[in-house]
Computed example of a mutant assay.
Amino acid sequence: MAQDSVIKPGSTIGILGGGQLGRMMAMSAAQLGYKVIGYAPEGDTVAEDVCHDFFANGWGDKPALAAFASKCDVVTWEFENVPVSAVEMIPPQMLAPHPRALEVAQDRLKEKRFVEGLGGTPAPYASVDSDAEYRDAAGRIGAPGILKTCREGYDGKGQWRVATDRDVDSVRFPGRSCVYEGFVDFEAEFSVILVRAKDGEVRFWDSTHNVHHAGMLSTSTLPAPAIVGEQVEEARGLAKKVAEALNYVGVLTLEFFATAKGPVFNEMAPRVHNSGHWTIEGAATSQFENHIRAVCGLPLGDTTTRFASIEMRNIVGAEALTAHEKLADDGEAHLHLYGKSEAREGRKMGHWTRVGQASA
Protein backbone atom coordinates (compact mmCIF):
# COMPACT_ATOMS: atom_id res chain seq x y z
CA MET A 1 0.00 0.00 0.00
CA ALA A 2 1.40 3.36 -1.00
CA GLN A 3 2.33 5.50 1.97
CA ASP A 4 0.61 8.56 0.47
CA SER A 5 -2.72 6.67 0.58
CA VAL A 6 -2.62 6.61 4.38
CA ILE A 7 -4.58 9.24 6.30
CA LYS A 8 -2.32 9.76 9.29
CA PRO A 9 -3.53 9.95 12.90
CA GLY A 10 -4.22 13.55 13.85
CA SER A 11 -6.09 14.07 10.59
CA THR A 12 -9.83 14.72 10.33
CA ILE A 13 -12.49 12.26 9.21
CA GLY A 14 -15.81 13.62 7.97
CA ILE A 15 -18.94 11.55 8.57
CA LEU A 16 -22.15 12.22 6.65
CA GLY A 17 -25.07 11.42 8.94
CA GLY A 18 -25.60 11.96 12.65
CA GLY A 19 -27.06 8.73 14.01
CA GLN A 20 -25.79 6.02 16.33
CA LEU A 21 -23.64 4.37 13.68
CA GLY A 22 -21.79 7.65 13.18
CA ARG A 23 -21.50 7.99 16.95
CA MET A 24 -19.81 4.61 17.28
CA MET A 25 -17.59 5.25 14.26
CA ALA A 26 -16.48 8.56 15.78
CA MET A 27 -15.62 6.84 19.07
CA SER A 28 -13.44 4.32 17.22
CA ALA A 29 -11.81 7.10 15.22
CA ALA A 30 -10.90 8.96 18.41
CA GLN A 31 -9.34 5.80 19.82
CA LEU A 32 -7.10 5.67 16.74
CA GLY A 33 -6.10 9.32 17.12
CA TYR A 34 -8.39 11.00 14.57
CA LYS A 35 -10.69 13.97 14.87
CA VAL A 36 -14.22 13.65 13.48
CA ILE A 37 -16.50 16.26 11.97
CA GLY A 38 -20.12 15.28 11.40
CA TYR A 39 -22.66 16.60 8.92
CA ALA A 40 -26.43 16.09 9.05
CA PRO A 41 -29.62 18.16 9.02
CA GLU A 42 -30.79 19.45 12.39
CA GLY A 43 -32.49 16.87 14.57
CA ASP A 44 -31.61 14.24 17.14
CA THR A 45 -28.01 13.94 15.90
CA VAL A 46 -26.51 11.75 18.61
CA ALA A 47 -23.16 11.54 16.82
CA GLU A 48 -22.65 15.23 17.56
CA ASP A 49 -21.99 14.42 21.23
CA VAL A 50 -18.69 12.72 20.35
CA CYS A 51 -17.56 14.78 17.34
CA HIS A 52 -14.86 17.46 17.34
CA ASP A 53 -17.18 19.65 15.26
CA PHE A 54 -20.58 19.26 13.63
CA PHE A 55 -22.41 20.88 10.71
CA ALA A 56 -26.19 20.91 11.26
CA ASN A 57 -27.11 21.82 7.69
CA GLY A 58 -29.36 20.49 4.95
CA TRP A 59 -28.24 18.01 2.32
CA GLY A 60 -28.75 20.62 -0.40
CA ASP A 61 -26.65 23.33 1.28
CA LYS A 62 -23.73 23.58 -1.14
CA PRO A 63 -21.74 26.23 0.79
CA ALA A 64 -22.03 24.23 4.04
CA LEU A 65 -20.98 20.99 2.33
CA ALA A 66 -18.00 22.79 0.78
CA ALA A 67 -16.99 24.21 4.16
CA PHE A 68 -17.38 20.77 5.75
CA ALA A 69 -15.23 19.09 3.09
CA SER A 70 -12.55 21.78 3.41
CA LYS A 71 -11.97 20.71 7.03
CA CYS A 72 -11.71 16.97 6.30
CA ASP A 73 -8.97 14.69 5.02
CA VAL A 74 -11.35 11.84 4.17
CA VAL A 75 -15.16 11.63 4.11
CA THR A 76 -17.38 8.60 4.68
CA TRP A 77 -21.04 8.06 5.65
CA GLU A 78 -22.98 6.23 8.34
CA PHE A 79 -26.27 5.41 6.61
CA GLU A 80 -27.34 4.59 3.07
CA ASN A 81 -29.95 7.32 2.61
CA VAL A 82 -27.53 10.22 2.40
CA PRO A 83 -28.58 11.79 -0.94
CA VAL A 84 -26.17 10.97 -3.73
CA SER A 85 -26.47 14.60 -4.86
CA ALA A 86 -24.97 15.68 -1.52
CA VAL A 87 -22.15 13.14 -1.68
CA GLU A 88 -21.28 14.29 -5.20
CA MET A 89 -20.52 17.75 -3.79
CA ILE A 90 -17.55 16.23 -1.92
CA PRO A 91 -14.30 15.97 -3.93
CA PRO A 92 -14.26 12.34 -5.17
CA GLN A 93 -10.69 11.67 -4.06
CA MET A 94 -11.79 12.31 -0.46
CA LEU A 95 -14.65 9.79 -0.46
CA ALA A 96 -14.66 6.23 0.82
CA PRO A 97 -16.57 4.16 -0.18
CA HIS A 98 -17.31 5.21 -3.78
CA PRO A 99 -20.74 6.89 -4.21
CA ARG A 100 -21.85 4.15 -6.62
CA ALA A 101 -22.48 1.97 -3.57
CA LEU A 102 -25.12 4.47 -2.46
CA GLU A 103 -26.66 4.64 -5.93
CA VAL A 104 -27.17 0.88 -5.92
CA ALA A 105 -28.28 0.46 -2.30
CA GLN A 106 -30.77 3.34 -2.33
CA ASP A 107 -32.99 1.67 -4.95
CA ARG A 108 -34.26 -1.81 -4.14
CA LEU A 109 -34.94 -2.62 -7.78
CA LYS A 110 -31.50 -1.50 -8.92
CA GLU A 111 -29.95 -3.40 -5.98
CA LYS A 112 -31.67 -6.68 -6.87
CA ARG A 113 -30.72 -6.44 -10.54
CA PHE A 114 -27.14 -5.57 -9.63
CA VAL A 115 -26.82 -8.62 -7.37
CA GLU A 116 -28.50 -10.87 -9.96
CA GLY A 117 -25.92 -9.71 -12.48
CA LEU A 118 -23.19 -11.00 -10.16
CA GLY A 119 -24.83 -14.42 -9.82
CA GLY A 120 -26.84 -13.83 -6.64
CA THR A 121 -30.37 -15.08 -6.04
CA PRO A 122 -32.91 -12.61 -4.64
CA ALA A 123 -36.47 -13.42 -3.64
CA PRO A 124 -38.97 -13.52 -6.53
CA TYR A 125 -39.78 -9.90 -7.34
CA ALA A 126 -41.41 -7.52 -9.78
CA SER A 127 -41.15 -3.80 -10.44
CA VAL A 128 -44.36 -1.95 -9.50
CA ASP A 129 -45.19 1.59 -10.65
CA SER A 130 -48.98 1.60 -10.50
CA ASP A 131 -51.90 -0.06 -8.76
CA ALA A 132 -52.50 -2.23 -11.83
CA GLU A 133 -48.85 -3.41 -11.83
CA TYR A 134 -49.08 -4.14 -8.12
CA ARG A 135 -52.13 -6.33 -8.62
CA ASP A 136 -50.54 -8.06 -11.59
CA ALA A 137 -47.33 -8.75 -9.63
CA ALA A 138 -49.25 -10.08 -6.63
CA GLY A 139 -51.21 -12.35 -8.96
CA ARG A 140 -48.12 -13.71 -10.74
CA ILE A 141 -45.81 -14.06 -7.74
CA GLY A 142 -48.55 -14.86 -5.26
CA ALA A 143 -49.08 -14.37 -1.56
CA PRO A 144 -47.70 -14.22 0.99
CA GLY A 145 -45.61 -11.35 -0.24
CA ILE A 146 -44.56 -7.83 0.62
CA LEU A 147 -44.85 -4.50 -1.17
CA LYS A 148 -41.82 -2.28 -0.56
CA THR A 149 -41.00 1.23 -1.71
CA CYS A 150 -37.92 1.26 -3.91
CA ARG A 151 -36.39 4.05 -1.84
CA GLU A 152 -36.11 5.19 1.78
CA GLY A 153 -37.58 2.20 3.55
CA TYR A 154 -35.80 0.58 6.51
CA ASP A 155 -36.58 -1.13 9.83
CA GLY A 156 -40.01 -2.12 8.50
CA LYS A 157 -40.87 1.36 7.20
CA GLY A 158 -42.20 1.68 3.64
CA GLN A 159 -43.31 -1.96 3.65
CA TRP A 160 -46.74 -3.58 3.51
CA ARG A 161 -47.30 -7.30 4.03
CA VAL A 162 -49.74 -9.22 1.87
CA ALA A 163 -50.47 -12.36 3.90
CA THR A 164 -53.03 -13.99 1.58
CA ASP A 165 -54.61 -13.37 -1.81
CA ARG A 166 -57.56 -11.79 0.01
CA ASP A 167 -55.23 -9.11 1.46
CA VAL A 168 -54.27 -7.70 -1.94
CA ASP A 169 -57.19 -5.27 -1.86
CA SER A 170 -56.41 -4.08 1.67
CA VAL A 171 -52.86 -2.99 0.76
CA ARG A 172 -52.92 0.22 -1.24
CA PHE A 173 -50.30 1.13 -3.81
CA PRO A 174 -48.52 4.15 -2.22
CA GLY A 175 -48.19 6.17 -5.42
CA ARG A 176 -44.43 5.80 -5.89
CA SER A 177 -42.11 3.17 -7.34
CA CYS A 178 -42.16 -0.10 -5.44
CA VAL A 179 -41.02 -3.70 -5.60
CA TYR A 180 -43.35 -6.60 -4.88
CA GLU A 181 -41.47 -9.54 -3.35
CA GLY A 182 -42.67 -13.07 -2.89
CA PHE A 183 -42.31 -14.72 0.50
CA VAL A 184 -39.14 -16.78 1.03
CA ASP A 185 -39.49 -20.01 3.00
CA PHE A 186 -36.35 -19.83 5.13
CA GLU A 187 -34.85 -21.55 8.15
CA ALA A 188 -32.75 -18.63 9.37
CA GLU A 189 -31.70 -15.09 8.52
CA PHE A 190 -28.05 -14.11 8.59
CA SER A 191 -25.76 -11.33 7.47
CA VAL A 192 -22.34 -11.28 5.87
CA ILE A 193 -20.28 -8.33 7.05
CA LEU A 194 -16.94 -7.69 5.40
CA VAL A 195 -14.34 -4.98 5.37
CA ARG A 196 -12.36 -4.19 2.24
CA ALA A 197 -9.13 -2.19 2.31
CA LYS A 198 -7.84 0.26 -0.27
CA ASP A 199 -5.48 -2.40 -1.60
CA GLY A 200 -8.35 -4.88 -2.11
CA GLU A 201 -7.79 -7.05 0.97
CA VAL A 202 -11.08 -8.45 2.29
CA ARG A 203 -11.82 -9.81 5.76
CA PHE A 204 -15.08 -11.24 7.12
CA TRP A 205 -16.63 -11.43 10.56
CA ASP A 206 -18.54 -14.54 11.59
CA SER A 207 -22.16 -14.51 10.46
CA THR A 208 -24.76 -14.17 13.20
CA HIS A 209 -28.25 -15.62 13.35
CA ASN A 210 -30.53 -12.59 13.02
CA VAL A 211 -34.09 -12.50 14.35
CA HIS A 212 -36.45 -9.69 13.34
CA HIS A 213 -39.70 -8.46 14.87
CA ALA A 214 -42.00 -6.09 12.95
CA GLY A 215 -39.32 -5.64 10.31
CA MET A 216 -36.66 -4.54 12.83
CA LEU A 217 -33.66 -6.54 13.97
CA SER A 218 -34.20 -7.86 17.50
CA THR A 219 -31.23 -10.16 18.18
CA SER A 220 -28.00 -11.31 16.55
CA THR A 221 -26.44 -14.42 18.06
CA LEU A 222 -23.44 -16.71 17.71
CA PRO A 223 -23.06 -19.55 17.13
CA ALA A 224 -25.55 -19.49 14.28
CA PRO A 225 -27.62 -22.57 13.27
CA ALA A 226 -25.87 -25.24 11.23
CA ILE A 227 -27.59 -24.22 7.99
CA VAL A 228 -25.97 -20.78 8.22
CA GLY A 229 -22.55 -22.37 8.53
CA GLU A 230 -23.31 -24.54 5.49
CA GLN A 231 -24.26 -21.54 3.34
CA VAL A 232 -21.98 -18.80 4.58
CA GLU A 233 -19.13 -19.46 2.14
CA GLU A 234 -21.42 -19.09 -0.88
CA ALA A 235 -22.87 -15.91 0.63
CA ARG A 236 -19.38 -14.55 1.31
CA GLY A 237 -18.43 -15.24 -2.27
CA LEU A 238 -21.30 -13.07 -3.49
CA ALA A 239 -20.52 -10.34 -0.95
CA LYS A 240 -16.92 -10.22 -2.12
CA LYS A 241 -18.06 -9.93 -5.75
CA VAL A 242 -20.29 -7.01 -4.77
CA ALA A 243 -17.42 -5.27 -2.96
CA GLU A 244 -15.05 -5.76 -5.88
CA ALA A 245 -17.60 -4.64 -8.48
CA LEU A 246 -18.13 -1.42 -6.53
CA ASN A 247 -14.39 -0.98 -5.82
CA TYR A 248 -15.62 -0.72 -2.26
CA VAL A 249 -13.52 0.57 0.66
CA GLY A 250 -14.84 0.11 4.20
CA VAL A 251 -17.44 -2.12 5.86
CA LEU A 252 -20.17 -3.62 3.65
CA THR A 253 -23.13 -5.75 4.75
CA LEU A 254 -25.32 -8.18 2.81
CA GLU A 255 -28.33 -9.85 4.43
CA PHE A 256 -29.49 -13.34 3.45
CA PHE A 257 -32.17 -15.96 4.03
CA ALA A 258 -30.84 -19.48 4.61
CA THR A 259 -33.17 -21.75 2.61
CA ALA A 260 -33.34 -25.38 1.50
CA LYS A 261 -32.10 -24.22 -1.93
CA GLY A 262 -29.20 -22.14 -0.62
CA PRO A 263 -28.68 -18.51 0.44
CA VAL A 264 -31.21 -16.02 -0.91
CA PHE A 265 -30.11 -12.39 -1.04
CA ASN A 266 -32.34 -9.96 0.86
CA GLU A 267 -30.64 -6.55 0.85
CA MET A 268 -27.33 -4.76 1.18
CA ALA A 269 -26.14 -1.89 3.35
CA PRO A 270 -23.03 0.05 2.29
CA ARG A 271 -22.02 0.80 5.88
CA VAL A 272 -21.50 -0.66 9.32
CA HIS A 273 -24.57 -2.61 10.39
CA ASN A 274 -26.80 -3.27 13.39
CA SER A 275 -26.10 -7.01 13.18
CA GLY A 276 -22.40 -6.25 13.63
CA HIS A 277 -22.69 -4.37 16.92
CA TRP A 278 -21.57 -7.52 18.75
CA THR A 279 -18.09 -7.03 17.28
CA ILE A 280 -17.34 -4.20 19.74
CA GLU A 281 -16.88 -6.69 22.59
CA GLY A 282 -17.01 -9.96 20.67
CA ALA A 283 -14.37 -9.63 17.94
CA ALA A 284 -10.68 -8.85 18.00
CA THR A 285 -11.42 -5.71 15.96
CA SER A 286 -14.89 -4.18 15.76
CA GLN A 287 -16.67 -3.28 12.53
CA PHE A 288 -16.43 0.39 13.51
CA GLU A 289 -12.67 0.36 14.03
CA ASN A 290 -12.07 -1.61 10.83
CA HIS A 291 -14.20 0.82 8.82
CA ILE A 292 -12.02 3.68 10.09
CA ARG A 293 -8.88 1.68 9.36
CA ALA A 294 -10.05 0.94 5.82
CA VAL A 295 -11.08 4.47 4.80
CA CYS A 296 -7.86 5.86 6.28
CA GLY A 297 -5.65 3.33 4.49
CA LEU A 298 -4.45 1.62 7.67
CA PRO A 299 -3.85 -2.15 7.92
CA LEU A 300 -7.05 -4.05 8.65
CA GLY A 301 -7.54 -5.50 12.11
CA ASP A 302 -8.16 -9.15 13.01
CA THR A 303 -11.85 -10.07 12.70
CA THR A 304 -11.67 -13.29 14.77
CA THR A 305 -14.55 -13.94 17.19
CA ARG A 306 -13.26 -13.91 20.77
CA PHE A 307 -16.02 -15.84 22.58
CA ALA A 308 -17.78 -19.15 22.18
CA SER A 309 -21.23 -17.56 22.44
CA ILE A 310 -22.47 -14.00 21.89
CA GLU A 311 -25.85 -12.29 21.87
CA MET A 312 -26.57 -8.74 20.74
CA ARG A 313 -30.07 -7.48 21.61
CA ASN A 314 -31.51 -4.14 20.52
CA ILE A 315 -33.02 -1.82 23.11
CA VAL A 316 -36.16 -0.31 21.61
CA GLY A 317 -38.39 2.53 22.80
CA ALA A 318 -39.18 2.71 26.51
CA GLU A 319 -36.88 -0.24 27.28
CA ALA A 320 -34.09 2.34 27.41
CA LEU A 321 -35.64 4.02 30.46
CA THR A 322 -34.88 1.02 32.69
CA ALA A 323 -31.75 -0.29 30.98
CA HIS A 324 -29.37 0.94 33.68
CA GLU A 325 -31.38 -0.85 36.38
CA LYS A 326 -30.79 -4.16 34.62
CA LEU A 327 -27.03 -3.79 34.98
CA ALA A 328 -27.40 -4.98 38.57
CA ASP A 329 -29.00 -8.20 37.34
CA ASP A 330 -26.33 -9.04 34.78
CA GLY A 331 -22.86 -7.77 35.53
CA GLU A 332 -21.45 -9.43 32.42
CA ALA A 333 -23.72 -7.60 29.98
CA HIS A 334 -22.34 -4.65 28.04
CA LEU A 335 -24.76 -1.74 27.72
CA HIS A 336 -24.66 0.78 24.89
CA LEU A 337 -27.17 3.65 24.96
CA TYR A 338 -27.08 6.05 22.05
CA GLY A 339 -28.09 9.27 23.84
CA LYS A 340 -31.35 9.75 21.97
CA SER A 341 -33.61 12.30 23.61
CA GLU A 342 -36.99 10.66 23.02
CA ALA A 343 -37.79 6.98 23.63
CA ARG A 344 -40.44 6.59 20.95
CA GLU A 345 -42.12 3.27 20.24
CA GLY A 346 -40.19 1.28 17.66
CA ARG A 347 -37.09 3.47 17.91
CA LYS A 348 -33.65 1.94 18.42
CA MET A 349 -32.29 3.45 21.63
CA GLY A 350 -29.29 1.23 22.29
CA HIS A 351 -28.19 -2.38 22.53
CA TRP A 352 -26.96 -5.03 24.94
CA THR A 353 -24.15 -7.47 24.23
CA ARG A 354 -23.63 -10.58 26.33
CA VAL A 355 -20.61 -12.76 25.76
CA GLY A 356 -19.90 -16.30 26.94
CA GLN A 357 -16.61 -18.00 27.66
CA ALA A 358 -13.57 -16.99 25.63
CA SER A 359 -12.88 -19.06 22.53
CA ALA A 360 -10.15 -21.64 22.81
Rank of each mutant, 00 (worst) to 15 (best):
M1L: 13
D4N: 14
S5G: 12
V6T: 14
I7V: 15
S11N: 00
T12N: 06
T12F: 01
G14H: 08
G14Y: 10
G14P: 10
I15D: 02
L16P: 06
Q20H: 12
Q20C: 03
Q20R: 10
M25C: 07
S28I: 06
S28C: 05
A30Q: 13
L32H: 08
Y34S: 02
K35M: 10
D44P: 05
V46F: 01
V46S: 04
V50Y: 04
H52D: 13
F54P: 02
F55L: 00
F55E: 01
A56P: 02
A56M: 06
A56H: 13
D61W: 02
P63L: 12
A64S: 13
K71F: 07
K71P: 05
C72S: 09
V74M: 03
T76V: 00
T76A: 05
F79H: 09
F79V: 13
N81C: 04
V82F: 02
A86G: 07
Q93I: 12
P97E: 01
R100A: 11
A101I: 05
A101M: 08
R113S: 06
R113F: 02
F114E: 03
V115Y: 03
E116A: 11
G117T: 07
G119A: 12
G120E: 12
A123C: 11
A123K: 09
V128W: 03
D129H: 14
D129G: 15
Y134M: 04
R135C: 03
A138W: 00
I141A: 08
I141F: 02
A143E: 03
P144G: 09
P144R: 05
Y154R: 10
D155T: 09
Q159K: 11
W160R: 01
R166V: 09
R166W: 11
V168K: 03
S170Y: 13
P174D: 06
G175A: 11
G175M: 12
R176Q: 14
C178E: 01
V179W: 01
Y180C: 00
V184Q: 00
E187S: 15
E189W: 00
V192Q: 04
K198C: 05
E201S: 14
E201G: 04
W205H: 07
D206Y: 03
D206T: 09
D206F: 04
T208C: 11
N210L: 00
H212Q: 12
G215W: 01
M216Y: 07
S218T: 13
T219Y: 02
T221F: 00
L222E: 03
I227F: 01
E230C: 10
V232I: 15
E234Q: 15
A235P: 02
A235I: 09
L238D: 09
F256D: 00
F257S: 00
F257W: 04
A260T: 14
P263T: 07
N266E: 10
P270D: 05
P270R: 10
R271K: 14
R271D: 06
H273D: 08
N274H: 06
N274V: 06
S275Q: 03
S275L: 00
H277Q: 11
W278V: 00
G282M: 01
Q287L: 00
F288M: 05
R293V: 03
C296K: 02
V316N: 09
V316I: 14
A318N: 14
E319H: 13
T322K: 15
E325Q: 15
G331P: 12
G331K: 15
E332V: 12
Y338S: 07
A343K: 10
A343M: 07
A343R: 15
E345Q: 15
G346L: 08
G346W: 05
H351G: 09
V355L: 08
